[in-house]
Amino acid sequence: MSATQKTSRTPRRYGMVIDLDRCTGCGACVIACAAENNVAPGAARENDRNSISLLRVFTLNNPTAAGRRTAFLPMMCMQCEHETPCVTVCPQQAVELDVLSGIVEQMPQRCLGCRYCMTACPYHARSFNWGDPSWPAGMEATLNPAVAPRMRGVVEKCDFCQSRLHAAQDAAAVNGSLDPGIYTPACVEACPTQAITFGDWNDPEGALAKSGETFAWLEGLGTQPKVRYRSGQNWLHEMAERGGAAPAKEERHG
């Protein structure tokens, strides 16, 4: 790609606003994400800590008695903008922040599996392929042809369905444009209650700009995540403002 082409493409800062009041925690995004990105079905040994989850939904419990008891929090890579923790630590440039899309790109073919980026990520949004991915016999036929399955020993994470971005770029290129515009990641498409809004933070007229008051988790760390949240529930705002976990007394020994 030549320099002139680079400058002529509008830099975008793709991001999301997730409405926590709309999320019912059904998990459609989780499965759609796994299917889109060729994540293998969980082997017998896999649990919430050693499986590949590019997108997870956490169950949040309201610590105050008033109001709704539970909220569900979908979390993927937050695509941090500022001093992106994982980008700076990767010893071999396998993680990079794409200036044209604002997406933190993960290059599994260059990753040596040191997992430093995983310890650096405050959102635990990264997964490591602890073993070889495997599908039941014949199920390889259901693999998404646009996404290469990762091998064991490399780290992976959400990249806003980059294959879909590339498809959008290709489609735009057919029309003589360099601007892929807004495309739809798998989780956004799958959400039955449209809790996830995907857009471009650079676009003042876009859906994100109109999303009203939003907040992010761990804002105090100053990483400027591009995935932000919205909720009318106060306890969620309070929880998000509180950094680190102050355990309830009874849970400390868990």
Binding site: P122, W217, A245, A246, P247, R252
Partner: peptide, 12 residues
Amino acid sequence: TLSLATLPFDEF
């Protein structure tokens, strides 16, 4: 460092 949760709802 790894044991401690960063996210407020996360577990030890």
